[in-house]
Amino acid sequence: MKISETDILLIPGYGKTLPGHWILRWRDKMATARVVKQAELHAPAKKDWLDTLVREVEAAERPVVLVAHSLGCILVAHGAHVLKDKVRGAYLVAPSDWDRDGLVAEFDGGDFRPIPRDPLPFPTHLVASRNDPYCGYDRAEDLAKAWGATFQDAGEAGHINVESGHGPWPEGMMSFAHFMKRLG
């Protein structure tokens, strides 16, 4: 599947996406990509975030491919059943483990807990780091298996964000291109 033939919805996670983050760079590089903007970034409510994502998917004019980071990955898992008709695939990066107590001091995971474990109804690829402070590698691999996702070891890449040195993240763009090719 060609990027130009899809609407790429980029779904950031908890908190502000810093300038230079790969999500913002990908938005700028792909003409059919746009960031799903949530109203509340530091006290997210699953229903509000999911309603926003559903509106974005419904507004799409082409088949949709979701690209999510951190809490965005968990949102995709929560909403898969309502998104399945228009979504052709999901590329998930560095999911955060909100089932783990004390993940973020300011937010306890709210109604994003527990993380769904049902298989996702569309092709999914999950990229995880061996030293992500927000999700253990074994836990990420377990989520990939539960969701029926192919799994990619990103090595010791932290949370795959600006703070861990992944602004441009060219390896991610290559991996995403391979995922798109798999979608046909």
Rank of each mutant, 00 (worst) to 15 (best):
H69R: 07
L53E: 02
K46S: 12
P44E: 04
E40P: 08
L53N: 07
E56C: 14
L71V: 04
E40H: 10
D48G: 09
A68L: 09
G79S: 02
C73L: 02
W49E: 02
L50M: 09
H78A: 03
L41W: 15
L66W: 07
K46L: 15
A68H: 06
H69G: 04
V67T: 10
S70I: 02
K47L: 14
H78M: 00
D48Y: 11
H42K: 13
L66C: 07
W49L: 10
E40K: 05
L71N: 03
P44Y: 05
A39Q: 14
V64W: 14
K47F: 10
V67M: 08
D51Q: 14
G79I: 00
V57A: 03
L75F: 02
E40T: 13
Q38L: 12
T52D: 07
P63C: 11
D48F: 10
L71I: 02
P44F: 01
A60S: 14
H69P: 04
A77C: 01
R62L: 14
A77T: 00
V67P: 04
P63H: 12
A77L: 03
H81T: 15
H69S: 09
E56K: 13
A45H: 12
P63M: 11
A68V: 04
L53Y: 07
V65I: 12
V82C: 04
L53H: 01
V65F: 05
I74S: 06
A59P: 11
L66G: 01
T52R: 13
V65N: 06
L53M: 10
V36D: 08
C73I: 00
I74K: 05
A77S: 04
A80G: 03
V54F: 06
H81W: 07
H81Q: 14
A43R: 15
A59T: 07
Q38T: 07
V54M: 03
P44I: 02
P44W: 04
A68N: 09
V76F: 08
V64F: 14
A45R: 13
E61L: 10
V64D: 10
V65D: 07
A77Q: 00
A43L: 14
V64E: 12
H78S: 01
A45V: 15
A80F: 02
C73V: 01
R55D: 08
L50N: 04
G72E: 02
A68F: 08
P63F: 12
P44Q: 03
L66T: 06
R55H: 13
V64T: 06
G72P: 03
P63E: 09
K37T: 12
H42N: 15
A77H: 01
H81N: 13
